[in-house]
Design a protein around this nucleic acid. Sequence first.
DNA 1: AAGACGAAAGTGGTTGA
DNA 2: TCAACAACTTTCGTCTT
Length: 322
Amino acid sequence: MKSAHGYSTEKEDSLETTEKTVCPECGSTSVVEDLTRGERVCGGCGLVLSDHHIDSGAEWRAFSAEEAEARSRVGAPMRYTVHDKGLSTVIDWRDRDTSGRKLSPRRRSEIYRLRKWQIRSRVHSSIDRNLAQAMSELERLSSQLGIPKPIRELAALLYRKSIMKKLVRGRSIEAMVAATLYAACRMRVKPRPLDEVADASRIDKKKLGQCYRLLLRSLDVKIPLSNPIDYISRFASQLDLSSPVQLRTVEILQQSREKGLTIGRDPLGLAAAAIYVASIMLDERKTQREIAEVARVTEVTVRNRYKEIVEVLEIDATSSMR
DNA sequence: AAGACGAAAGTGGTTGA
DNA sequence: TCAACAACTTTCGTCTT
C-alpha cells in the first residue's frame, strides 16, 4: 500500500492538482463533490460544474473475493434512465383519448408514429449524453496522464464502438473510458501500467481490468502483448537515466527474451529488473526501491527477475564493470 | 542507517477437470 | 463451478555497504 501511494516525485503533484476540476467561472480549484446529489459544485462561486455525476464507489464493503464479485455494481449506476428528468411528454400506450374514447384508425397510426419517434429521440439523446460525459472524462483522464492526442482519438473511437455494442450498459462510464484509454495506449505501443490508469481514474484496478478484457473480446481489436522494452524510455526518464543505460537495458531485455526468460513474466517486473542491472553495470546505480516504484512492482519482484537475468546471461553484476 | 536479500504466507487470475 | 497452480505482493528478520 505504502509503495503505491508514497510518491515524492513531481508526478504526484500533477496528480493532486488535476484531480480537481478548475472552475471556468472563477478559476477556483476547490470543487466540492456531492455524490448523493450527483453534482460537482465550485467551492468558490457555487457554479454547478456537472450534474449527473456518477458515484462509482463501492456499493458495499466487501471482505472477500467472492463478496467483492457479488457486490459489484450491476445495472445502470447512473440516472440516465430519466434523462429528461420527467419533464418530457409521455405518449400513453393505450389507443384512447383523454375522455376514454377509442381513437380513429387514422389518429391511431399518427399516434403510433409519434410514439416511435419519441422513443428514437430518447435513445439518441441518451447516447449523446453518455458520449458527452464520456468524452469529458476521457479528456480529464488523458490530460492527467499526459496522453497525446492521437491516442485520445483512438480511445474515443473505441468508446464509440463499445457504446454501439452496448458494452457500457450496466458498467460505469468512467470504467469504460479508462479501459478504452488503456487499450489505445497499448495499441499504439505506448503502454501505461494498469495501476497508473486506475489511479488517475476513480476506478479500481480490478474493474478496469474486467472492462479491458471485455473490450478485447467484444470489439475484435488485436492488441500485441506488451513488451517490456516499450516501458523503458518512460521509466528511464522518470529515473533520470542516461541514454547509454537505456540502450544497455534494451540489450539485456532482448537477450533475456532469446533465453526464454520473459515468458509468463510481468513485463513491468522485467523492465524494472533490466533497468536495475543496466544501472549497476554502467555505474549509475539506482536502488531497487526507486525502480520498483516507477515500474509499480515490488522490490521483491525486481530482485527475483534480476537474479534470473544475472544467472542466465552470466553477468557479473557484483563488480560494476565497464 | 539505508539498502539488499530471502523466507513465508497471502492475493488475484488462469486453467483444467 | 471448483480446486490446483504460477506469478506477484506483503511482511518481516537478517545481512551488507
